[in-house]
Amino acid sequence: MSEIKPDSREPASKGTVVDCAPETPNLRTVQLIRKVAILLALLLLVVLAAVSRSSDDMDGNRHETIETIGRVAIIIAIFGRAWCSLYIGGRKKAEIVDRGPYSISRNPLYVFSFLGAFGVGAQSGTLTIATLFVLAAVLVFHFTVRREEIWLDKEFGETYRQYCARTPRFWPNFTRWSDVEELTIRPKFFLLTIRDGLVFLLAIPVFEMIDFAQILGVLNVFMRLP
């Protein structure tokens, strides 16, 4: 994977139509906005989970099954995000990464985040909450990605547009898979991604506490969700 040097970058050509908004954002600002939006969405959904409960509480089998599936999804999301960071960590602003998971999706790290969002919501024991968590994540990341695309198009021009043409934004196209024989790993970014991914695991004790509080009557249940 060759690094694209500053003098070899092609600016976006005049009149080129880019599937993005016209202004160019600062990536650091975009990431900050994304984190705040995710935090607010999580708080709202946790509040919803606190006042609702699974509609099949009488036997609880479906409730427990959904929780278990969610925990598997969280583990896959943590490892998947870490795998992606091996390729993209520290390189996003220096080159177009188009190998490994980035050869089949332009945003595989976010795809694994969607899976993690499902796993977090599934700890409520209801598919409704799990689905709402995924939809919230898709909404937030959709706008984040659109902003990132503006910056990448400006920095890498035609190289980036060719990458967009052959690689889907989210849903993987496995027929496009390609990889490298050797990969330089930057431990700092890998460990940061692991740390961030472990936050998903906090959903397990949080939702268990919500369940316990509902059983004790500390939290009132106002609705039953499938």
Rank of each mutant, 00 (worst) to 15 (best):
M58D: 15
M209I: 13
T193M: 10
K5V: 10
T175W: 04
L225T: 01
L216V: 04
L27M: 12
A165R: 12
G60Y: 03
K92Q: 11
L139C: 09
A117H: 01
M223G: 09
I104T: 07
K5I: 10
T184D: 12
N26V: 14
L39F: 13
A203V: 08
S13F: 04
T193A: 08
R176L: 09
D57S: 14
S54C: 09
F118T: 04
V221E: 02
Y110F: 15
N220P: 06
A203K: 01
A213D: 06
A12Q: 11
V145A: 05
G80N: 07
A165G: 11
S113G: 15
F222E: 11
R99E: 13
R224V: 06
L109Q: 00
L202Q: 08
S52D: 02
A94T: 08
G80F: 07
L216K: 15
R161G: 07
Y163V: 02
A213V: 06
N173T: 06
L42C: 12
T126R: 03
H63T: 09
E148V: 00
A50C: 11
G121Q: 01
Y163M: 03
G116M: 00
D59C: 08
A82P: 01
I75M: 10
H142Y: 15
A137R: 03
R166W: 05
E208N: 12
E208L: 07
S54F: 05
V46N: 01
R28A: 12
T144S: 05
E10R: 11
F114E: 07
A122S: 03
Q123W: 05
S178M: 07
M223W: 11
A165S: 13
T65P: 00
A77D: 00
L48M: 06
R62V: 10
R169Y: 02
P101V: 01
T131G: 14
T128V: 10
L135Y: 03
L132I: 07
L201R: 04
R106N: 05
M223Q: 09
A21H: 11
V111Q: 01
F112L: 02
Q162K: 15
M223P: 00
V46T: 11
E182D: 12
N220L: 06
W171F: 14
F141P: 00
L86F: 12
V46H: 03
I210C: 03
G70D: 05
I38V: 10
A136C: 04
P226D: 09
F190H: 01
D179K: 01
R186N: 14
E158N: 13
L198T: 14
V180I: 09
F200E: 06
V120G: 04
V51K: 12
G197T: 03
S8M: 13
E181N: 13
L115F: 05
D98N: 15
S55W: 01
A117F: 06
D211K: 10
C20P: 00
K154I: 03
P226N: 07
L191N: 00
D179I: 02
M209G: 11
L27E: 06
Y87H: 10
S85P: 00
P11M: 09
K14R: 13
W151M: 05
